[in-house]
Design a protein around this nucleic acid. Sequence first.
DNA 1: AAAGGCGGTCTCTTTTCGAGACCGACGCTA
DNA 2: TAGCGTCGGTCTCGAAAAGAGACCGCCTTT
Lengths: 164, 164
Amino acid sequence: MRYEQLADLPCSITRPLVVLGDRWTLLILKEAFAGVRRFNAFQSGLGIPRSRLQDRLGRLVDHGILVRQQAADGDHAEYRLSRKGHDLYPILMAIRDWGDAHMAPDGPPVHYRHRDCAGEARVTLACDCCGERMTAHDVVPEAGPGLLAHVDAVYGAGVDGPES
Amino acid sequence: MRYEQLADLPCSITRPLVVLGDRWTLLILKEAFAGVRRFNAFQSGLGIPRSRLQDRLGRLVDHGILVRQQAADGDHAEYRLSRKGHDLYPILMAIRDWGDAHMAPDGPPVHYRHRDCAGEARVTLACDCCGERMTAHDVVPEAGPGLLAHVDAVYGAGVDGPES
DNA sequence: AAAGGCGGTCTCTTTTCGAGACCGACGCTA
DNA sequence: TAGCGTCGGTCTCGAAAAGAGACCGCCTTT
């Protein structure tokens, strides 16, 4: 039970990872972005055990990342990305960038091209104010409102901190 | 043994995930980017079992993501990010962006500010040719050199495909 | 000599995973 | 209408991984 408690920490990296950080979840989402929607297609595409897939799809639906519905034409089930799930795409592209750079000795297996353009999709880290490109060295962490709310919730609002 | 075999697939999302896709690995790296270098600091910072931490640090060192060395001043061990490890930062920032957007009801717990600037670090997906911002809908996958090399390796070079 | 910090190991129990059989519902087709 | 294939989904069971916590040798400090 210790691991799940990490989701309560006031950290926007930790909280998603409690949901996404396991063997299969991000691979399932990768398939979803590739257009896969059906249970059996996920299963055969990844080789994931059926019971595991069932569990992971359920969790993603519970978190509002996938939406389960009946297909319009037939009557089989469909798992589609919600808006929230769709927003995960930059994460997968960031992983791909790293994979292309460090785990693809023969060059990228797949180009992710811009529709009707010679270019390719790339993830960049930049300042949303001045637009300058950034690396980890340029980043300074600073407490935000979510942290203060967390402190209030844990130690009670109206006090300065855990001194009592 | 099935899961590890995914690392052989010609996919730059799958291959990194076989290394990074488990409960703790990305959390350990998050700590590393926060400046943590010592075994006990990782352990107490995350609450990870010591044996688990030992295993994960070893794997990250094996993959050249962390480098283990003796500290300059004292004689304790130090785990530092290599260049390859440093390049993982956009992945963590992409996760954070999503966490801030979808799992931080009270606002971001932490701002990741640009040094000496009011702005904040943001991940964006854009075309490396025309610079236009992109989403999953704008991306068209296309076979790259790594895929062809993989086909050659599996089916033998000099043939057109798996027809033999 | 005692105490405490360090990275690291070992053991034991619980949890999760993997493989594959199995299920009912539905749609074909003979 | 009986047989067959496909669909999403469930169940069982042995194997692998995770969690906890004690334990270790080494070193420094007191």
